[in-house]
Design a protein around this nucleic acid. Structure first.
Lengths: 251, 251
DNA sequence: TACAGTTGTCTAGATCAATAGACATTTGAG
DNA sequence: CTCAAATGTCTATTGATCTAGACAACTGTA
């Protein structure tokens, strides 16, 4: 069986698919940037060249580049070209001992987690099953958004059994750390029991919280942390901006 | 800080974003189906109701439903309504001992892996770095597509150091199993050393191989397997159809 | 059979996306 | 300075998407 060669001179974009050509092209250029395809020059090829490669009008390419400039990924300078401002995805480690701030430390200078809101609510089926409690039992919800160097990276909803961690919200607000808030309840260590990962289009709330443009992708990690006896202590759904993050699984 | 309530009567879709309304709506309905929001009735709400919820014309909703019907997710019956045909995502386990067929066994009746092509090529920087060989050293590439119950689930490109596994392609064609092909080279056990996960829009080749519609999402897992001495034996990039799969991390 | 509720089809017009071409403006090199 | 190469701006036109309304066809129930 012969090897299929990717000779594709013309980079394919498809029409009449509900996704505008300029957006498909923006996605392709974003990918090429993060792959390092343009590292040699440090800039994107000229608009006329890109238009030729994709088989579209130059104006269509300009729409794509305008969208990328809006994201802060490139910056166009008249007379010179379109320069790459930023390229790497931040790598987020998932391991037995996953703590948010650690592991990102070397990649981002400034990490911030902001509490969006908190509340108590009866556990629905999904949450109750994960935490091993009865549906309707009270859980505490924390909603947070995390940023690196000023860019939002993830939004998260976390659930804690209220009977065991009654002051979770207050302690988190005081200490700005889940690990420390656990410690304030007498829990010194916990480990990741399971993680499920799904990718999908961002919904309207995620678009606005993560400052994404419609059609953008989120990586959703549904994770369960347990104490050393195996009893669940936290269930959370974290949605990462997929174009800014990759997940690294450490087994 | 008060809890933010999601009262959203009107489900928000955004205009002038390069993603057609019908496609945004299709994505939202697909998500609602996989969340089980419509399980009680087993069918999608009437077109007029959906049009009201999203604040669009009924024709726009019809375009969205037509796209979902094309995917085989729903089936419209005149006079009755639009029924849900399929909803679950297949869960793919990632652990120290990840083998493709296992773990999917209970979820899918019929698993097939088809060899698309193979070849020998000099390792590029990415592959050489992963496999711990010199750039330019020969690697064997296997390109496969895997299906469950007739639906394509993933496409994969795998790379093996040719000096150690010279007959990888032939053995895989004969045995239809990477694990058995390794065994034929005298390697009885191997473990997952690392996995990185990225989500992005599918490119044209992935769209056709996975039978996806443009704008669809792939989950790409870049994984490295090593023998028990820690020496890399396989580097692969597997792209999963994100709307059909979720990844389960087992730590 | 009658009817309410639903999907299917058609027409017409408004708005958005993409093409095409022309020319202005800026930059860097010779 | 001059020029080539690149981005910026404008106009006009075509095709795709979305809205609007009307009515046909089918299903299940009363």
């Amino acid at each position: 069986m012969p090897m299929r060669k990717d000779t594709a001179m013309r980079k394919v974009v498809e029409r009449q698919t509900g996704v505008a050509l300029w957006r498909q092209i923006a996605d392709r250029i974003r990918l090429a940037i993060s792959n390092g395809d343009y590292d040699a020059a440090g800039m994107v090829p000229p608009e006329t060249v890109l238009a030729g490669e994709f088989g579209v009008n130059r104006h269509t390419v300009r729409s794509a580049l305008a969208a990328l400039a809006e994201e802060g990924l490139v910056r166009a300078v008249q007379g010179r070209g379109t320069m790459i401002e930023r390229k790497e995805r931040v790598s987020y480690p998932i391991s037995k001992r996953t703590r948010f701030s650690q592991g990102l430390g070397r990649q981002v200078k400034e990490i911030g987690t902001r509490l969006l809101g908190h509340g108590e609510l009866p556990a629905n089926g999904e949450i109750a099953k994960a935490l091993g409690i009865a549906p309707g039992d009270t859980v505490i919800e924390l909603r947070t958004v995390s940023s690196g160097d000023g860019r939002p990276l993830s939004v998260s909803s976390s659930y804690y059994p209220a009977h065991r961690f009654p002051r979770m919200a207050e302690e988190f607000e005081r200490l700005h750390s889940v690990t420390k808030a656990f410690a304030a309840h007498g829990l010194d260590d916990y480990v990741r029991a399971s993680t499920e990962i799904v990718a999908r289009h961002a919904d309207a709330e995620e678009l606005s919280m993560l400052k994404l443009s419609p059609g953008a992708i989120v990586l959703e990690a549904q994770s369960l942390n347990a104490d050393l006896d195996g009893s669940p202590v936290e269930y959370s759904r974290t949605r990462f901006a997929a174009d800014r993050m990759k997940l690294r699984i450490e087994t």
